[in-house]
């Protein structure tokens, strides 16, 4: 659905993206994570045809974005990070203006807009001027404008920034609904809990390079820690065959590639020890993320 090949973007002397390669399949909800200045917004802007790349190619649904940016915009929706509207116009007037670029009949457009405003939770403020809107309301209106053309692919750049907790929950629910409706979503954020809840795939971008792309389930499975507490304390070297072993207080932590709990239990029992506790400890996305971008766990 989205294919990015060797995408590079240089602003002056700053390389914002460095030979980015990325493939996002249909109905995937892809979370693009990275620190500030990693190149997330640049990547999305390039995919939306808002910027010209220095080199590389992007195809969306088989359309070359660089050659046919308008065709891409017809099938995509975009919520920019700092989404802005015409403040002297009402919410409905803003959306009606944007809908005119899709040649929708006015009646159909109004009914579509009303549904969208209902979906994002600002139907009561439809006739209010955008200049009177709070940051959260603008963000919700931004999502409505991104869904105006019933797009196949939706790009959301930091969609939950500036939202209150209810707003964040509502946003995640809308993304889940979009996934159910078969949409493909690319969602950039630096809030990892949002990614874990809303996305099925994750990409970590740092200094313009994609460090990792993986399904969230696989990513969490790959980094399993098995915590064992025995009486008496077992010799940790016995468990070395299952993975890297650490001792913390009275517990032994085995960093394994698979869930070896049954095998570890058997080994401990053969040694005549009693198992007081054995459980899996999934690393947080934060740990994985910080490990990858060179931070500390």
């Amino acid at each position: 659905m989205i294919e990015v090949k060797n995408l590079t973007k240089i602003f002056g002397e700053f390389k914002a993206l460095d030979r980015l390669n990325l493939k996002i399949e249909e109905n995937e909800v892809f979370g693009l994570v990275g620190p500030n200045g990693a190149g997330k917004t640049t990547a999305i802007d390039l995919m939306m045809g808002m910027l010209q790349p220095t080199s590389g190619s992007i195809t969306i649904s088989g359309i070359d974005v660089i050659r046919n940016p308008l065709e891409v915009k017809k099938i995509c929706g975009y919520l920019p990070e700092k989404v802005g509207f015409y403040e002297h116009m009402t919410a409905i007037e803003n959306l009606l203006y944007f809908s005119e670029f899709y040649k929708m009949p006015k009646k159909e457009a109004i009914s579509n807009i009303n549904e969208l405003l209902e979906l994002v939770g600002i139907a009561d403020d439809a006739d209010k001027k955008v200049g009177e809107f709070s940051k959260g309301m603008i963000q919700r209106l931004g999502l409505a404008q991104a869904l105006l053309n019933n797009p196949k692919i939706i790009f959301l750049d930091e969609p939950t920034s500036g939202l209150d907790p209810k707003g964040v929950t509502d946003f995640k629910n809308i993304i889940k609904k979009l996934r159910k409706d078969g949409k493909t979503v690319l969602f950039s954020t630096h809030i990892l809990s949002d990614v874990k809840e809303a996305c099925n795939t994750l990409g970590i971008l740092s200094k313009g390079k994609l460090l990792l792309k993986s399904s969230i389930d696989d990513l969490l499975k790959e980094n399993i820690n098995i915590v064992v507490e025995t009486d008496p304390l077992i010799d940790p070297s016995i468990l070395k065959s299952f993975g890297e072993v650490k001792v913390k207080d009275s517990k032994v932590i085995v960093k394994a590639e698979e869930d070896f709990r049954i095998e570890i239990s058997k080994t401990i029992q053969q040694r005549g020890c009693t198992i007081k506790e054995i459980h899996l400890l999934e690393p947080s996305l934060e740990e994985i993320y910080l490990n990858l971008i060179g931070g500390i766990t």
């Binding site: 065709e71 920019p80 670029f101």
Partner: peptide
């Protein structure tokens, strides 16, 4: 003004040259 308010970016995300 459109650059400042961000409405230009929103506008350009729709199919208009």
């Amino acid at each position: 003004r459109e650059k400042e308010t961000g409405s230009l970016k929103t506008l350009l995300s729709h199919p208009v040259y």
